[in-house]
Nucleic acid binder design. Structure first.
Length: 577
RNA sequence: GGUCCCGUAGCUCAGCUGGAUAGAGCAACGGAUUUCUAAUCCGUAGGUCGCAAGUUCGAAUCUUGCCGGGAUCACCA
């Protein structure tokens, strides 16, 4: 199915038999850009001559023999630079179409992950307000990466960490309290700096009024703070889940920081660190570069993260005995590890990149370096409208929410765009672009290709007066697919499994939308194909045999587009009118 | 100042863990429509891959040092 993998395995396994197990893994097998270099090519000779200090001719002969023995190649050429270029026998690529047609949605799947458990944590936005653009990229990135990892055979757990403890949520409770007083018609002060002035708490204030009347108006904080905090968190988590849901982003597990604290998981991990003599009492280094007025020299408990590769040792327990954010997070990752996740990926905003080495060193310490832990960061998103930046006022709490963007451009467009750049690259998101219905808008471009194919299959059924289904197509004469562009399309489809595997091993979802664009483009070219200035019609009533073979090819294109779109969480459309 | 990320065509970006002549889209210019959906396609033009050394058969890709842009540097999360 994965044709490159197939011949790569054949090549490497045979080479190992000849030269021994310890071969350089950098031997490549690929579709060369330039078709004059053959259907596939390998650098094996160049790599091996360097590695083994043997006669070049001997290696060339060995490599060529391996390919000859398969019986699948028409020609095998060695070019001056040392590449070996191979050309398939005609039927090899064509047979591939048939195999894919039989696999359908399983096409592209692999067992790279071997069913291993992997935990992917994403979003994890604080429950202090609804999601905005900044969260969206990480949300889609994490969701699509999860899809990719599942596609290549990992058992993925999608997880969200709720920071429902600490100072922020207390401020949230106070903000809600003010909304509650306002709902009762009380005169109140402005919601001050550092609190949450957004309108999203107004409704909750009213609900709390309905439940408790004026019971808490003049009562001391201790009496209401727990109730207000919990109902605020619940309210906002519901908002967040609702928004994620309408974006098609889902999580399997929500882990609460408060739970980790209440169940003594945090304290027991703290004690464990202490037993391992990784904690000490000391003074943290003063902040550099920016003058932090709140900083004073005090004694805290620090974790020896420097020992595990961090730049500084980090405070885990403050002078007053309370935890920093870091300590529950260490415990959280120990908890993930204890739940059987020896592989973990966290998706973080670029503004948290300073946190990476700290977290990595902690995980090394608590797992004896037995976990594979990776952090992917997403740079910020710049919203524009017709090239002009969209202004956001953080102060009033009125930033552009995820909900508003979904309402304006739809979740498909957002999802496609959010993973169409490398995570490390900044991203411009232009509203106007996604309302266009042309080439500028990549989502339409891809959907249009898919819809056109569906429409062709339908039209062909009508005009040829036969029911066209996959059984019929599977019996078409595929040897007629010998035009250059047809063979190119087959090769492009054949590279799909490799693209997905690369997206998985590099943890780079953006490879999928780029591939989709390429494949759609190849189809659109084919649609407009001219031979001798004559437009080639795909459905030709006078040549049913050719028509069916072409439709078979296109059916497989549609299967592949649909598969890649499903990885992105986008449904392929059968019609665009 | 330290750390991390980015720097490729006028603009937005790919570039397959070191491969063959560096690629798309947009914008510009010139074409294709009695349409199987032109929401498309074809062609032209556009490059010192930020700069400089190094590593080797071979570098946009790896190393080091500069230059420019961004993020971050807590006892916030």
């Amino acid at each position: 199915m994965n044709i490159l993998r197939k011949y790569h395995d054949i090549l490497v396994n045979n080479l190992k038999e000849i030269y021994g197990e310890s071969l350089n893994p950098n031997i490549s097998l690929e579709f060369p850009k330039d078709p004059s270099m053959g259907d596939i090519s390998t650098n094996a000779v160049m790599i091996l001559t360097k590695e083994l200090s043997l006669e070049k001719d001997k290696i060339i002969k060995d490599v060529s023999d391996i390919f000859y023995k398969t019986g699948d190649f028409k020609t095998i050429n060695v070019v001056g630079s040392g590449f070996i270029n191979l050309i398939f026998k005609d039927n090899i690529l064509q047979d591939l179409i048939l195999k894919i047609l039989n696999k359908k949605e399983i096409f592209g799947h692999s067992d790279l992950g071997k069913g291993k458990k992997i935990n992917i944590e994403y979003v994890s936005a604080n429950p202090t307000g609804p999601l905005h653009v900044g969260h969206t990229r990480g949300a889609v990135f994490g969701d699509v990466l999860s899809n990719i990892m599942e596609f290549v055979g990992f058992k993925v757990c999608r997880e969200y960490y709720i920071n429902d403890s600490g100072e922020q949520v207390n401020k949230l409770a106070h903000s809600t309290y003010i909304r509650y007083l306002q709902a009762l018609g009380e005169e109140t002060k402005e919601i001050e700096d550092g609190f949450y002035p957004g309108e999203y708490l107004i409704e909750l204030g009213k609900t709390l009024k309905d439940q408790h009347n004026d019971k808490f108006v003049n009562s001391p904080e201790e009496e209401w703070i727990d109730i207000f905090r919990e109902s605020s968190i619940e309210h906002i988590m519901n908002l967040i889940k609702e928004d994620l849901n309408s974006l098609g982003v889902h999580h399997d597990v929500f882990t609460s920081e408060k739970y980790l604290l209440d169940s003594n998981i945090v304290s027991s991990v703290y004690e464990e660190l202490d037993r391992k003599e990784l904690l000490y009492e000391g003074i943290s280094t003063s902040p550099k570069g920016n003058n932090n007025e709140e900083w004073t020299e005090r004694k805290h408990i620090l974790f020896k993260s420097k020992k595990f590769g961090d730049d500084e040792d980090r405070v885990v327990k403050k002078h007053d005995g309370s935890w920093t954010y870091f300590m529950p997070d260490i415990a959280y990752h120990k908890n993930k590890f204890d739940r059987g996740f020896s592989q973990m990926i966290n998706i973080l905003g670029a503004d948290h990149s300073g946190y990476i080495s700290r977290m990595k060193s902690a995980i090394k310490a608590i797992t004896q370096d037995k976990a594979i832990f990776d952090i992917k960061t997403c740079q910020l998103v710049k919203l524009t409208r017709g090239g002009q930046p969209v202004k956001m006022s953080k102060r009033s709490g009125n930033f552009i929410t995820l909900k508003e963007i979904i309402e304006e451009v739809g979740s498909d467009a957002i999802r496609f765009m959010m993973v169409s750049r490398k995570g490390e690259a900044k991203l411009d998101f232009d509203f106007e672009l996604f309302k266009k219905e042309n080439n500028d808008n990549p989502v339409f471009y891809v959907q249009y290709a898919h819809a056109r194919i569906c429409s062709l299959l339908k039209n062909a059924s009508n005009s040829l007066k036969i029911d066209i289904d996959d059984n019929l197509l599977a019996n078409s004469n595929l040897s007629l697919l010998n035009n250059k562009i047809e063979l190119d399309i087959i090769k492009l489809i054949a590279s799909y499994p490799k693209i997905v595997e690369q997206a998985a091993s590099h943890k780079e979802p953006h490879r999928v939308p780029f591939y989709l664009r390429d494949l759609s483009s190849a189809f659109h070219q084919y649609w407009n194909l001219k031979i001798n200035d004559e437009r080639v019609k795909i459905v030709d009533e006078n040549d049913i045999e050719s028509t069916l073979s072409r439709l078979t090819l296109l059916r497989v294109v549609a299967i592949t587009i649909s598969s890649a779109l499903s990885i992105l969480g986008i449904k392929a459309l059968n019609e665009l009118r």
